[in-house]
């Protein structure tokens, strides 16, 4: 391979989905935390709630659009995140080699991974399941809290709360590793491409099995 060879990792529709997802989710997380801890005075709290609602609508539209326009990607993503092998357990045993690399500047042997490594798979599952729960519960809490039985409404409230905590915690890790792996970050936010060597190192199985050469 020549030095300049690249792989298109994130096609445009995936990137657009991700832009909107990132923008709306960050907004939702910040306003959500403000609302939960009641950090502001009355009119500002109301504004925070309104922003929360608008961002929630944007997130929902984004998810729906992606679901219908790119159902193949949804299926592919679901399959990849829910497919586990022994390698994933081994990956977790060394935590992908990241702590060693970041903290001790040591390189350890990491089992070969597909497009998503075991940690990303776990994150992917949380995003799929948690995100769906958050969207559904959010809509019920906004539009139907009077009509659903209040026991159910209170349970839906708890689901919304716990799912958001899990996702916010994962978001920190995701942000950190995303920036740490600058090539991936650029791929997602700029042009979708990552260098071939980089991918071959981090996702050897993907590079081996799932790619097609152009031309």
């Amino acid at each position: 391979m020549t030095e300049s060879s690249f792989i298109l990792k994130h096609p445009l529709r995936v990137r657009v989905f991700h832009y909107l997802l990132a923008a709306s989710f960050l907004t939702l997380a910040v306003t959500g935390i403000m609302l939960y801890f009641k950090l502001l005075a009355e009119p500002a709290m109301n504004t925070a709630m309104q922003v929360h609602v608008v961002a929630g609508v944007v997130l929902t539209m984004d998810a729906l659009a992606f679901f219908f326009l790119a159902f193949d990607r949804v299926v592919l993503f679901t399959k990849r995140t829910f497919t586990f092998s022994g390698n994933d357990i081994k990956w977790f045993a060394v935590l992908g080699g990241y702590p060693q690399k970041i903290l001790l500047h040591k390189k350890v042997d990491v089992p070969p991974m597909g497009k998503y490594n075991a940690g990303q798979k776990l994150f992917g599952i949380c995003v799929l399941v948690g995100g769906t729960l958050l969207i559904l519960s959010g809509w019920v809490l906004w539009a139907l809290p009077h009509a659903v039985p209040h026991g159910a409404a209170s349970m839906i409230g708890s689901i919304h709360l716990y799912a958001s905590w899990v996702l916010i915690l994962f978001l920190f890790v995701h942000l950190f590793l995303g920036i740490y792996m600058w090539d991936d970050f650029k791929a997602m936010f700029v042009d979708g491409r990552i260098p071939y060597e980089d991918a071959a190192e981090k996702a050897p199985l993907w590079v081996k099995n799932d790619l097609r050469r152009l031309g």
């Binding site: 300049s4 060879s5 792989i7 096609p11 399959k79 042009d191 799932d210 790619l211 097609r212 152009l214």
Partner: peptide, 15 residues
């Protein structure tokens, strides 16, 4: 196919 920006893409259907 002459686009120089990348030379590999994902198989559209690995399923």
């Amino acid at each position: 196919k002459n686009d120089p920006s990348h030379e590999f893409i994902e198989n559209p259907f690995s399923l």
